[in-house]
Amino acid sequence: MVEPVPILEMAKPNSKEVLIEATGLSMTFDDRQILDRVDIQVQSREIVTLIGPNGAGKTTLLRLLLGLQVPDTGTVQRVPELTIGYLPQKVSVDPTLPLTVERMLGLTNPVALEAMREELEEVGAGHLMQAMMHELSGGEQQRVMLARAMLREPDLLVLDEPVQGVDFKGELDLYELIGRIRDRRECGILLVSHDLHLVMASTDRVVCLNHHICCAGHPEAVKRDPEYLALFGHRAAESLAVYAHMHDHEHGLSGDIVENDH
């Protein structure tokens, strides 16, 4: 007799699994220490937010984790066959390059049209399939790039400042979307943000980086950490309350009101 449930359980281990783990990463450019013995790990089904001031080494750390650069010292370990979906800080397609969203989605790997359509719908960009990449707004572009990363069916999603160039309302929407993706896909998410209060609601763990790891842990704990406050000031902690309200509706990309399902 076939019992489908246990098989499903087998495919998705219910205990949290470490997807990627870096230990003792150090990196020096031109005699400047960018990273100093940094440890970080991301488990499946958790959202880790990397936060730190400009020039703190956040992007360098991501590049090391992605294998785009080799650290001076330290190691990066990934689980075997780890698929990573990556959303770079800013992808600006040159206006001379005629690239539709459809082509962008299948840029490195051919993808079935139906899968593209579904993924675009999920990020609220279903109407953009035939739009030209260079004509998209910042928010539209990030949604398309998010759909693109998701099409790889990643175990780990790496998002470098996903809300850059997106207006304030769009920022909140994008973070909500990222939270939903984690719930639905059960992947791990590592995200870089300049703004802790925006990601509070959807983050499981915050890692505060300023060349070394200043502090790490639950967002509530980090925002009271003296090292965090020294970096970002008390105002950052106080302004948190402002964003703790719920929305009863949101606006779709085309301006229509979309009911929230929570």
Partner: peptide, 19 residues
């Protein structure tokens, strides 16, 4: 053609996706 186009759009993205 395909890898070159990917590199043209975004070098790091292409590299991260195995090109």
């Amino acid at each position: 053609w395909r890898p070159l186009l990917a590199v043209t759009v975004h070098e790091d993205l292409a590299a991260a996706e195995g090109i």
